[in-house]
Design a protein around this nucleic acid. Structure first.
Lengths: 256, 256
DNA sequence: GAGTGGTCTAGACCACCTT
DNA sequence: AGGTGGTCTAGACCACTCA
């Protein structure tokens, strides 16, 4: 059944003796995935089939599936079924190479869709970050990004139009960083990145075709030009199972 | 009821018109938390009380609570109740100051408990990271860390004993980095950090007194000395709601 | 010992995807 | 049209916490 050389990229330990039904089922399916009996992209048996096979109630089966989802081993396609997750992408937010480049470099197929690009008055929270008055016009770009046809990330980017006038007249389906650099000579000298596990809610959930409340990873990236001005404020919402954030850092000498 | 000045540190948007019962309850409770009606550390009404107040079944109530847990707004204390989450700690894994220091600096009370410290033969996966043969002796340290009395993090640290002979004879309830530096003159010149949302399983779950399968954040930190040798390999498992990872990076000039 | 969440059952109807 | 997951009900018993 395996579609690819599935390897155990996560979950090093196999928990021991469980008495609980849903933990047993969880670990059984996890073992099948790790062994490659279920390969990447395969669909699991339906909940009602699993129910029969175990003599458990459907709620119990679903509890096991939820846990595997939390582990990042399986995901759901709404009302279609449960599928084995592809391996996560390695993402280094400190590198200037864009999504398209690093996904391709990992042998996967990236896509970007620009959902909207507009000039908007800065909302309160964002204005403070750019150091401008509330209501100052900012570019607001919303994009959806996919890997191998699976939507994995929605992002909302704010850009200071003073540094990149006419930005939204460019095609933004590639690397925004590249456009900023090539068309405007603007490049980040410093990045501040904040990450937090989150729930995918509302619009983001709809866009990702995920259930509202499903687990995600919020990555917020603020990039500054050499003069310390905010160039770009990027709020990314990832499916939690799609990414490993990896950062490589040279430690500053003592004394900061 | 609020015990502290609760502020909406997360969840910027309030989702709109919901027809679904559990989403309505979820958003209602979220609003109460944001408004400070429910303050940090407060206990929510019991599931059966919420059931009555809504005329919903208990499963529906629980679905709402699970979503709030996924958002990091509430957490459970096993068989005791649901409580409003404290604000997450900001964690910068690139700084050399330890847990005790940065938690204190944020006005919180840190604790560290060393669960075990031993010399063990390097397991396969870890040996590769240190670049030593499988079975080579390595220090293996396991610690539990808490903030304001709440367990938030378990970590397993491997250290090359060649670089720090006798390390485990020191007290490791403080900053390991400080011990390495002060007693051995060993300091990291480079850090590699990988982060991924995960599920808290098995031993880690027991240690954190969390339910197996509850959402977590895995942070794996590899630090290298100036000669490029691995000093420390640190696998951290955080409660997902306890931390925001924040990194500040000066971008390397083009050409790497 | 009373109350809490944790687990489990056995149904039901619905919206949506798939074919 | 048939099958899937999504939501919801109304119970039950248990292990554990807390007073």
């Amino acid at each position: 059944m395996g579609t690819s050389g599935a390897k155990p990229w996560w979950r090093e330990s196999a928990p021991a003796h469980n008495q609980l039904q849903y933990l047993e089922l969880r670990d059984r399916i996890a073992a099948q995935i790790q062994a490659g009996v279920l390969g990447v992209g395969d669909r699991l048996p339906s909940e009602r089939q699993l129910e029969d096979g175990l003599g458990s109630a459907r709620g119990t089966v679903r509890e096991a599936l939820f846990q595997l989802e939390a582990e990042g081993l399986i995901y759901r396609r709404d009302r279609s079924g449960w599928y084995v997750c592809p391996a996560p992408i390695l993402y280094d937010p400190t590198r200037s190479e864009g999504f398209m480049a690093y996904v391709t470099a990992q042998g996967r197929r990236p896509e970007t869709e620009t959902l909207s690009k507009r000039l908007v008055p800065a909302p309160d929270a964002v204005a403070g970050i750019f150091g401008v008055a509330e209501g100052t016009p900012l570019y607001d770009i919303r994009r959806l990004r996919s890997i191998d046809g699976r939507s994995v990330l929605v992002e909302r980017i704010h850009v200071n139009p003073d540094l990149a006038p006419g930005l939204i007249d460019h095609s933004l389906d590639g690397s925004l960083t590249a456009v900023l650099k090539n068309a405007y000579g603007v490049a980040a000298a410093r990045n501040r990145i904040a990450m937090k596990p989150c729930a995918i809610l509302g619009d983001d959930a709809e866009t990702l075709r995920a259930r509202s409340g499903s687990p995600g990873l919020s990555v917020i990236r603020t990039s500054f030009d050499p003069a310390g001005r905010v160039v770009e404020y990027d709020q990314e919402c990832w499916r939690h199972d799609a990414v490993i954030v990896s950062v490589d850092i040279r430690v500053a000498p003592p004394g900061h």
